[in-house]
Amino acid sequence: MDILAQLIVSGIAVGGVYALIALGFVVIYKATSIINFATGEFMMIGAYFFYTFLVMVGMPPIPSFLMVMLCSAMLGLFIERAILRHMLGQPTISIVMVTIGLSSILMGLAEMIWSTDFKNFPPLFPRAPIILGDIIIRSNLFWGFIVAMLAVAAFALLFKYAKVGVAMRATAGDQMAAFSMGINVRTMFTVAWSLGAIAAALGGVIIGNIGGIQPTLGNIGLKIFPVVILGGLDSIAGAVVGGFIVGLVENIAGGYLDPYVGGGVKDLAPFVVLVLILLIKPYGLFGKEDIERL
């Protein structure tokens, strides 16, 4: 029983971070209908930005954090303007492949700039693990979860109350109507990419703080697909719920099944759940069902 409680708690903690990264994906998908396979690489680059400012430049943690947000926003903006703007109205396969190509470019560049060596952040939070009754949580995971939840809440408030958030929701709802209400839809695309890059980068910083960083960190980004599919591609609330489900599933399945098959269940379980969910509900748990007419 202790083990189960332990697995559930760490599953929720990891799930919170997944939710933040998935948010970065959903924001872009909702506004622009682009499925971003480079989300994982945005995450990885964000972690490296943080490393650069914190260790190489020597800034204190909070200014470094703000610089990461600024730099990732610039990166998202640049990528949208330079590449994705040309892809408007292209078939799905082209858009999927462009973001896959992009992820390859970002990964190669990261290897060139920061080398393939494994890097660690200096400790940011008190080392002592957090103890809740019988359950022990690593301090990095606990604080990472707190930061991720704060970031998710900030994004939620932004979408609910800020003018730009409302404009983005309008764009996602109906581009033509948004356009005729005086919203600059193209600017909204750029904003969406910037926000998406920021959310992914923050997730990357947290993940990097837990497990260290290297250019292959972006592979974790593949896990956001079970997350976003579970929640439905275009639902922000769904991304958060999906994040928790995937965190729980992978921890519990990993904890109980790993000894039998020799490891690796953690990375597989989310995808098995994904297939099962898709077989029952083809548009995810909270996704919008398309009604097509000729």
Binding site: M97, G101, S104, I105, G108, M112
Partner: peptide
Amino acid sequence: PLQTVVFGMLI
């Protein structure tokens, strides 16, 4: 790593 970059650039 240039190979990875070139692969992505080609696409």
